[in-house]
Design a protein around this nucleic acid. Structure first.
Lengths: 129, 129
DNA sequence: AACTAAGCTAACGTTAACGTCAACTAGGAG
DNA sequence: CTCCTAGTTGACGTTAACGTTAGCTTAGTT
């Protein structure tokens, strides 16, 4: 019943308004994997799975994280902890990321307040001439 | 009555745990200005004014903005609009930045939720062996 | 058959944001 | 006076994240 959703590289690229080169680069550094290539044409093809992964990557970028940091967060999503040690290591990592994110949210809210303040200052300012 | 607060470059650097080179670089690209140099020794000196500016710059960086974007936002704080046209241009810029920031906050909150979800998933997972 | 569009690999180019290093100077400590 | 520390100006080096170009293949069109 699964819809046969396969995308070419340029289709996937235009979905997110990025270049094909960017997608190949993400694969190059192991952040994205293409389905097993058609062994004849060597063309990459993507499914919704990769589309979601790419979406996560781009969200991370918009938030100011490096590709390396994003990779670690995605690994978090996909990791399957073997043993209690790894499990708690993962949970610790998640907690530290959560703290970081909450701090970032706070800072953004402060920045927002600052800009609002200055904006209002201008709005109430009589302009010369 | 103003306290005589003058900092050397390395003092200012260590306040924020950055290098002197970074501060010189910010001056190089015109994001930071040092007080009129001692014309003899050519040494830079900074006041609380520059300290605040630097703090804003570093906050912007932590939030993922480029130095160029940060410069524009700081210009916003310091601009003194000449004429109605510029005034409304500035207000429009502020509004667009505010939208961007609010969007970013939303995305961060979603990311936070995602990580929380995955974290709980792991916490409730029995680990093999 | 000839052409065009889309994809591929390999490799070099580019920009932002500094790091690093060399060669110099000014100000104290001993 | 000598040495050490901290500062200065170039200028070249570095890394992440792609952009760009060349040379090749395959698939579909006229």
């Amino acid at each position: 019943m699964a819809k046969e959703n396969f995308f070419t590289i340029s289709e996937l690229a235009s979905m997110f308004d990025i270049s094909s080169r960017t997608i190949r680069y993400y694969e190059e550094i192991g952040m994205l994997t293409s389905e097993s290539r058609e062994s004849l044409t060597m063309q990459r093809s993507y499914t919704n799975r990769e589309r979601r992964r790419l979406k996560m990557i781009l969200r991370g970028k918009k938030l100011g994280f490096s590709l390396q940091e994003i990779r670690e967060m995605i690994d978090l999503y996909e990791s399957n902890p073997e043993g209690e040690a790894e499990k708690s290591r993962i949970i610790e990592f998640a907690d530290s990321k959560l703290k970081e994110i909450e701090e970032q949210i706070m800072q953004l809210q402060m920045l927002r307040e600052d800009i609002l303040t200055y904006k209002e200052k201008y709005e109430n300012t009589r302009v010369k001439a």
